[in-house]
């Protein structure tokens, strides 16, 4: 079973996204910010990461840049999932190594479609 890490400071978002992603036959774990996510990745690198942008301690972009420098950190498929929906933010995320990008609000269809775009489902 593939493993997806959900990184978002909102417990509600983590719960909703978690349900959707479990339905896609993933094992799911959660982190509330980028630093916690990085720690979890060092213990066990996930196959996929659903990543919020604005979070306390370490934001999504800083996490992504740090992740890609980690050993094995180029492997996970990273899908941003954020309220930031302008071209500048999206472009910066892609240049920093994000594979896909979901603009909030999202639903199960969007998550599945985006996961399909990057070959996760």
């Amino acid at each position: 079973m593939k493993h997806c890490l959900i990184v978002d400071d909102s417990r509600v978002v983590r719960t909703v996204a978690g349900r959707i992603i479990r339905d896609l036959a993933f094992e799911v774990s959660e982190a509330g910010d980028g630093a916690e996510a990085l720690k979890l990745c060092r213990e066990r690198m996930p196959d996929a990461i659903l990543l919020d942008w604005n979070m306390p301690v370490m934001n999504g972009l800083d996490f992504l840049r740090a992740l890609r420098r980690e050993e094995g950190g180029k492997d996970p498929v990273v899908v941003f999932c954020t309220n930031e929906n302008d071209a500048d933010h999206i472009g910066e995320a892609i240049r920093s190594g994000a594979n896909e990008y979901i603009m909030k609000p999202f639903d199960a269809d969007i998550v599945e479609s985006k996961f399909a775009e990057v070959g996760l489902v």
Binding site: N85, A87, E100, I102, F106, D109, I110, S113, K114
Partner: peptide, 24 residues
């Protein structure tokens, strides 16, 4: 709409072939 363009289109295609309007 926001939901239509996120189903079936990759983010790269969305950025390359669409313009975001003030209405979202």
């Amino acid at each position: 709409g926001h939901f239509d363009v996120q189903k079936g289109l990759s983010i790269q295609r969305l950025m390359r072939h669409f313009d975001r309007m003030d209405t979202g």
